[in-house]
Write a protein that binds this DNA or RNA. Structure first.
Length: 425
RNA sequence: CGGGCCGUAGUAUACCGGUAGUACGCAUGGUUUGGGACCAUGUAGACCGAGUUCGAUUCUCGGCGGCCCGACCA
């Protein structure tokens, strides 16, 4: 994409109403726009990155047998009353709206619906139709879907927002054993995802409370000072325990010893938990087992917030010049920076390289703007694309391109003839 | 939801109970051109409402909005 056509611009200064590093950098670089507290828009670069992250998650979910769907944001009140999760005293961050055609002035027939904050109820209800027999199990269903949560306090930029896309997967298994097998498989897939987006060595599977669902759950926590959670890490065993549940009893269960634990602040980038039959029982999701008697599927749920993950990557990997994206999630793998200053030969050379990158399937952000070199370099550093290619009189005279690694700043001259090959590896 | 801080051009910031200043941005012209250049000219602003006052952007109250700490986080 030609940068001259990109409608967003970089900003020298962060807006005063953002303190979180992720929001400051993402806004300065033109990835996101704040709509209101806890609500952000994704701009061209931001949407590209978000979609890259979603793509990674999708690949890994598909790899373990997930089937992608898209459920609605509007949800039926009755379903949530069935599980006693409609009342505001039970769930205090519901967004609820009234359907117009059923409203009466006195409110007597007003019909409320909820805006999805999660999907256990609707999906459990829906899947009942498709899994009449044990032969239909297990099934794994997931989506990337907009959740609404009326947070009393949104904070930390895009890390904790009121409206966000969530990858939520739900597993339906015939019994606990079958469930458990998938649960572990999914935990592995999660680790793979966090590795691919550049957070692998900082992200720990963390034993946590199961909330209202179950005795325990597993969180995936990325070590970062900006995090809200405190965890205790056993680096040798590569697992952690959330401070909330870090009792002697839990440590004994997990075979951990307090003296091996290291305390750290961390960001919860994923959470998986067993639901047992809580929802399938209540919502009458039944299947026939081999003996012909009715049973309820054993369920689990598995969440990742792609935008929070995006924010976490910025928090963890950026430096004083700006963002540093890992290749897998960068909006473009290559930032082509042309320093031409009206020199037609340089412009032609840059155009030519841009075209051949395109022909070879390498997407580039092409800085063809008529601005000074310093501004281009500063913008490129801020935007954070992992590989910069600089074209100027100097490089053209030498018959090579200057390839700069954003993370390390190291530059190398790559001959024109081998640039494509160099970028592909 | 409790507590605190804060609302001034598009952005970031000053000052002031009496004419609102600076920088960046943007526009035009010129000089520049490998790390956010320079000159000139121009552009644009006090969140809303009430009160106090001769006069309020400034003080007081209310609303709205934002951030931070805490609580919450299915």
């Amino acid at each position: 994409m030609r940068q001259s056509t990109l409608f967003t611009k970089t900003r020298r200064e962060a807006p005063k109403d953002e303190v979180a590093k992720n929001a400051q950098l993402l806004i300065r670089a033109g990835y996101i726009h704040k709509e209101m507290a806890g609500v952000y828009d994704f701009l061209p670069l931001g949407l590209r990155t978000l979609n890259k992250i979603i793509g990674v998650i999708r690949e890994e979910m598909n790899a373990i047998g997930g089937q992608e769907i898209l459920m609605s944001s509007l949800q039926r009140k009755e379903l949530w009353e069935t599980t006693d999760r409609w009342d505001d005293s039970k769930i205090d961050n519901w967004f609820k709206v009234d359907l117009k055609h059923d409203s009466e002035p006195d409110g007597s027939r007003s019909k409320e619906v909820g805006l999805a904050f999660t999907h256990e109820e609707p999906i459990t209800n829906m899947m009942e139709q498709f899994i009449p027999s044990y032969k239909d199990l297990p099934k794994y269903v997931y989506q990337f879907q907009t959740k609404f949560r009326n947070e009393k306090r949104a904070k930390s930029g895009i890390m904790r927002t009121r409206e966000f896309i969530m990858k939520d997967m739900y597993s339906f298994s015939r019994d606990e054993e079958q469930f458990r097998e998938f649960y572990e498989q999914c935990a592995k897939a999660y680790q793979k995802i966090f590795s691919r987006v550049g957070l692998g060595d900082k992200t720990f599977r963390t034993f946590a409370s199961g909330g209202v669902f179950s005795k325990f759950s597993d969180e995936f926590q990325t070590v970062c000072d900006a995090g809200e959670d405190t965890i205790y890490i056993d680096r040798k065993k590569n697992i952690a325990v959330n401070k909330e549940v870090c009792t002697d009893e839990v440590l004994a269960d997990l075979g951990l010893s307090r003296k091996d634990l290291e305390e750290a602040k961390a960001i919860e980038v994923g959470n998986i938990f067993p639901l047992s039959t809580r929802f399938s029982k209540t919502l009458l999701n039944r299947f026939k087992d081999e003996a012909g008697s009715e049973a309820n599927p054993y369920m689990g749920s598995y969440g990742i917030g792609p935008a929070r993950l995006m924010g976490t990557i910025v928090e963890v990997l950026s430096d004083d010049k700006g963002i540093v994206w890992p290749r897998e999630v960068a909006p473009f793998p290559v930032h082509l920076v042309s320093i031409a200053h009206g020199n037609k030969d340089i412009e032609a050379e840059a155009d030519h390289l841009y075209d051949s990158l395109k022909e070879n399937g390498i997407e580039a952000l092409y800085d063809d703007r008529d601005v000074r070199a310093g501004e281009k370099f500063a913008d490129a550093d801020l935007i954070g694309i992992p590989t910069h290619i600089v074209i100027s009189e100097k490089t053209v005279a030498g018959g090579a391109f200057e390839v700069v690694d954003r993370a390390t700043g190291t530059a190398s001259m790559i001959p024109e003839s081998s640039i494509i090959q160099h970028l592909k590896k």
